[in-house]
Amino acid sequence: MIDNRSSEKPILTPEQAVKWCDRHFGIGADGVIFALPGQNGTDYTMRIFNSDGSEPEMCGNGIRCLAAFLSDLEGMSRTKNYYRIHTLAGVITPQLAVDGVKVDMGLPRLLAGEIPTTLAPADAKVINQPLEVAGKTWDVTCVSMGNPHCITFVEDVAAISLESIGPQFEHHPVFPQRTNTEFIEVVSRDYLKMRVWERGAGITLACGTGACASLVAGVLNDKCDRTATIELPGGPLEIQWSEVDQRIYMTGPAERVFTGKY
C-alpha cells in the first residue's frame, strides 16, 4: 500500500512494482496498491500493479486492506467508517467494522461479453460449460466482479496442480483478457474451500473477487447458499449474495504487517 494522495498518477512504474514485489530482492508481494486522490465525487482512487507489472481492474482483498490503510493515514481526522473508492471496475464501498472490513463489491456480471469470454455468445451466460484445459474437460462457470473469473468445482481442491494448470487456464484463447481461475471444493452449502490462480500474480493465498465470484458460481449451480464461508489458504472470507439488492458483500480482516518510507 502506497500513500499516493499527493499525485493523480502512481509514483512507481509497473517495472518498479515488479521489483518491489520480488520476494527475494524486493519487499515481496502479489501486487502494489496506490491510494490516489478521489475522482468524480469519490473519496479516493485505487490503482494496482500486479507482480508481473500488469494492471487489474480490481482486487477484493486489496481494497479491504486499502480501507484499513486509509483509516491509519487519516487517524483522528477520520469522520466516517466507510470510503467510496474509484476503481477501474467502478465505485466500490468498503466499510470499517470491529471484526474487519465489509465491502460492497457491487453486482456480479454474468454475460459472456461482460467477462469477457468466447465460451458463449456475448449476451449469454456461461454456467457449467465444458472447457478443454491440460488434456482434460473441466465444467466451468464464468463470472466478472469487474475482473474475469473462471470457476470450476472439484472433489479435492488440495489435489489440483495449480502451478501447471493455472497458467493454461489464464492464457486460454477463450479468455481474450486472460482470467483468474478458482478451484472449489464444496464442504457444505455454507462452507467452500478455494484455491486460486490469479491473473498476473499466479498462486496467491487469497483472492477477494475470486471468493465473491465463486459464491455466485456456487449459487448458479445450486451447490451452495447465498451466504457462505469461503476458506482460502490465507484464511476465511464471509461472502453474501443479497437477495434484496443482488449485490455481493465480502467481510474479512485486514492487518498491518509493517510500514516504511520511500
Rank of each mutant, 00 (worst) to 15 (best):
residue 208 G to F: 10
residue 98 V to C: 08
residue 208 G to P: 11
residue 7 S to M: 04
residue 6 S to F: 07
residue 76 M to R: 13
residue 199 R to L: 06
residue 139 D to C: 06
residue 163 E to Q: 15
residue 146 G to M: 00
residue 76 M to D: 15
residue 240 Q to G: 03
residue 241 W to G: 03
residue 149 H to L: 01
residue 245 D to V: 02
residue 32 V to T: 13
residue 28 G to H: 01
residue 101 V to N: 06
residue 125 K to C: 02
residue 30 D to Y: 06
residue 115 I to E: 00
residue 252 G to K: 11
residue 149 H to P: 05
residue 246 Q to A: 00
residue 113 G to C: 00
residue 206 A to Q: 08
residue 7 S to G: 14
residue 44 Y to P: 03
residue 204 T to Y: 11
residue 104 D to Y: 09
residue 23 R to S: 15
residue 8 E to P: 06
residue 214 S to I: 00
residue 153 F to Q: 11
residue 126 V to L: 01
residue 224 C to T: 14
residue 67 A to T: 01
residue 109 R to G: 00
residue 26 G to M: 13
residue 5 R to L: 09
residue 73 L to Y: 09
residue 69 F to L: 13
residue 26 G to W: 08
residue 27 I to P: 04
residue 203 I to K: 11
residue 224 C to R: 01
residue 118 T to A: 05
residue 2 I to Q: 09
residue 97 A to V: 15
residue 98 V to G: 05
residue 172 H to M: 14
residue 215 L to D: 06
residue 16 Q to G: 11
residue 213 A to Y: 07
residue 190 D to T: 15
residue 120 A to H: 04
residue 42 T to M: 11
residue 149 H to N: 05
residue 55 E to F: 00
residue 224 C to G: 07
residue 89 A to R: 03
residue 60 G to D: 02
residue 258 F to P: 01
residue 4 N to G: 10
residue 181 T to L: 08
residue 6 S to Y: 06
residue 235 G to S: 08
residue 46 M to V: 01
residue 136 K to H: 10
residue 222 D to I: 06
residue 141 T to L: 01
residue 46 M to I: 02
residue 193 K to R: 15
residue 36 L to G: 01
residue 77 S to F: 05
residue 15 E to T: 13
residue 10 P to H: 04
residue 224 C to Q: 05
residue 250 M to I: 03
residue 131 L to F: 13
residue 56 P to V: 07
residue 129 Q to D: 05
residue 171 H to M: 05
residue 56 P to K: 11
residue 147 N to A: 03
residue 123 D to N: 15
residue 13 T to N: 00
residue 92 I to Y: 09
residue 155 E to V: 13
residue 133 V to A: 06
residue 152 T to K: 06
residue 78 R to P: 05
residue 117 T to M: 00
residue 167 P to W: 07
residue 14 P to K: 12
residue 128 N to W: 14
residue 186 V to Q: 11
residue 9 K to V: 08
residue 208 G to T: 12
residue 168 Q to N: 07
residue 184 I to L: 09
residue 207 C to F: 03
residue 133 V to N: 04
residue 144 S to R: 00
residue 121 P to I: 08
residue 50 N to A: 08
residue 10 P to S: 10
residue 202 G to L: 13
residue 22 D to C: 04
residue 194 M to G: 04
residue 142 C to T: 02
residue 168 Q to P: 03
residue 225 D to C: 09
residue 42 T to V: 12
residue 113 G to P: 02
residue 128 N to E: 13
residue 111 L to W: 02
residue 145 M to R: 01
residue 22 D to M: 01
residue 167 P to M: 09
